[in-house]
Design a protein around this nucleic acid. Structure first.
Lengths: 232, 232, 232, 232
DNA sequence: AATGAATGAGCGTTCATTCAT
DNA sequence: TATGAATGAACGCTCATTCAT
């Protein structure tokens, strides 16, 4: 089933499923298969298509049996979401190890990783679903926020190394801007989108723009806007 | 019913509904009420909740009668989407009239309009739904692409004024990056999002960063990336 | 619209619509157009597809207006059925004029007319619908019975000329057998049926068999069955 | 429920439902009950009345539960149709065992079986529905064609024994004529039809006529028609 | 004659959930 | 673990009918 998923380019696995204590190996495998099936449905046909029945069918499972593993749809959705999110968190953990490089290089590298991932089918398809869901579902909202908080943490670390003179809150907002800026490319240059071929250009623009911004921003510009372009 | 919708701050109406020839005034009003009800459901509870039955109920209409106005759900969705999109297109038309200002000021103004709109409940809620839908629905995809194409056209106009030396394709990609960058803020600093209060800072960052980028980018940087930060 | 209907080969028109007194000419024409549209739907898609809405749409009539001409579906169905049946009755009237020919030739000719008509799309499609409907609809049942009674009358006339020695009831049963025998070919060799190309052979078999039967049947064979093949 | 169905006189069961592997006995019984209910509705009120909801109600089943057994109406229709057809096929199989009798006797017997069956309510009601449906439904069309092909095979066997001198294609057309001829009696002398009481006479006429035809037909008469009654 | 509008019913489908086996 | 069975709800759709304009 794995082969149906666009392979994550370098580092991000599709799902990271925690082992459960006290279950047979078969149960663990089945659970994994279920989550993979659900993921594929989510990617290929959207959230609505990811019904218990279709997931069961895709696993060759009788429908009644799926409810043994996941008594309610919510259980399945949550487990899936956690497995997806965990996969990303692992990346941000591993990135921290790059301490040897100069911060600008690390910033660039991190951006490239994120933007490359955005080009995968999985990310292009799943995240808009999550954004939409998070507007009406507290649980999804929290997990997505968590995920992005971790992503920002990586940026904050690098930014504060480049600009130790700025206040922590400014580091945060810069990180937020960088993150938002990249996420926005999903809908224009993600997998199958009209500007997918331009993604390399976008990467270069983003990195240049981010480094310039981080390097040159002055504290007062957060509040007043860039010189001479104030609201009035 | 209007009061349920966060008022668009300055310029963007919620819906622009074309008049139909033939039919009583009551029919036109009913059609408008239906689209408003659908919009509210979409905003407040998401796409799935925007069912024919709930829309009818919200209008005090019997279900059978709703199918008189909109024989199929698709008809309703299309009419709604077109009315929403049309509202944005009007903005982009009116912006073109600002020819007197220097291009940087016009760029800043346009960005502020867009980012302010992103803070409205309507935009924060609807666009993620559209992004998700557009991955699996050709019609939504096309209308969304259309909308963003018009938005980019406004940016291209300004950018090419600032940088007449760049090639048209570069103008396009710069506009794309600006647009994507702003859209990405929806999920972090849109209505009710954790960073909504930081939106003014983000605006300032975005505008400074965009103007710097547009002003300083060199043609070769599209392809090679910023100096010394190439992939290798 | 006429051209959509398979042309009746020689003599049977599609519909015979009586004129109404006290209506404008336009109303009469509209009524005819409506019935033709209904007929086409019945032929091409079956009884269920012949809904008021679809008939109206096919006539370019607004739905509400159709209910002016035919307030209820039943009205429409009845008018259509009567127009269809009347078309056949006209044939049986005209056939009676062939008095000059020997009865066997007239029998053969009548059979050929009927079997040729069965090969038309209209007849192949409509009659099975009528047979099915007549099982659950008294009105249809009566009109169909009427139609076949007239058909049998033509046969009875010829048969009694060939076999004046038989009793009237025997004439009736012979006519019935001939008629039933031919109607049965509809479902095997009617328009578009697998044995449609064999219809000429079936015609020859039928005519030979009918003339032999009518000519040679002995009164006691009605009751006892053919010699030596009695039930026991 | 059985008592609602006119009992098949001698040999043809109403439904032959294959057993399913897996599943409790109760499930099998329920499936049978469902098909019987559907059959009754089809017979008593016609195809349109055989809705999922009415079938469920007739079985004392909640509607949602019926969709467990038959997820779609098409599934139900197909299962029903196959069960009906299978019942007839069994008859044609068993008839082949009558090898001891002279072919004319076997022909007569087969005709009587068929014509007796036509007098049952079930056959009188179902077949016109199938004929009508088969004009617009490929599946029904195929099953009906299959059924009649098997019926003809029985006739072909007997006919070719009586007339080994004729070519196989002529055997086929003779069988076709016999079959069509008998099917046509359904609408005149089937259950509840005006000529139902005359069916015994029709049987005798049919058998005499068929045996005469098969015995006396000359090869050239297929093409030229009976002597002196050619088309011209 | 013609149109617009409203109602109520039925249909087939999909689904999450629950429970007995 | 695994399956079969049952329930109730909602959904989109089509339709015949009725009535005001």
């Amino acid at each position: 089933m794995k082969q149906f998923l666009a392979p994550s380019p370098t580092e991000i696995p599709d799902l990271v499923i925690p082992e459960r204590e006290g279950g047979y190996a078969k149960g663990q495998e089945m659970r994994e298969q279920i989550l993979r099936a659900a993921l594929i449905l989510l990617i290929e046909e959207g959230y609505r298509a990811m019904s218990m029945r279709r997931v069961a069918a895709m696993c060759g499972l009788k429908f009644g049996n799926l409810t043994y593993y996941y008594p309610s749809r919510e259980d399945l959705v949550r487990d899936l979401l956690e497995s997806v999110v965990r996969a990303y968190e692992i990346v941000f953990e591993t990135i921290k190890g790059d301490a040897g490089l100069p911060p600008e290089r690390r910033l660039a590298k991190l951006c490239r990783i994120i933007l490359e991932d955005i080009r995968t089918k999985k990310t292009t398809r799943i995240f808009p679903e999550l954004w939409a869901l998070s507007n009406h579902d507290r649980f999804v909202q929290e997990r997505v926020n968590e995920l992005y908080a971790r992503a920002r943490a990586s940026f904050v670390e690098i930014i504060s190394e480049i600009r130790p003179d700025l206040q922590p809150e400014h580091h945060q907002v810069l990180a937020l801007f960088l993150s938002a800026s990249m996420e926005g490319t999903t809908i224009f240059a993600g997998h199958g989108k009209p500007f997918e071929p331009h993604m390399p250009w976008l990467e270069n623009l983003a990195i240049k723009s981010f480094i310039d911004l981080v390097s040159t921003i002055r504290p007062e510009e957060f509040d007043d806007g860039p010189l001479c372009l104030n609201r009035a």
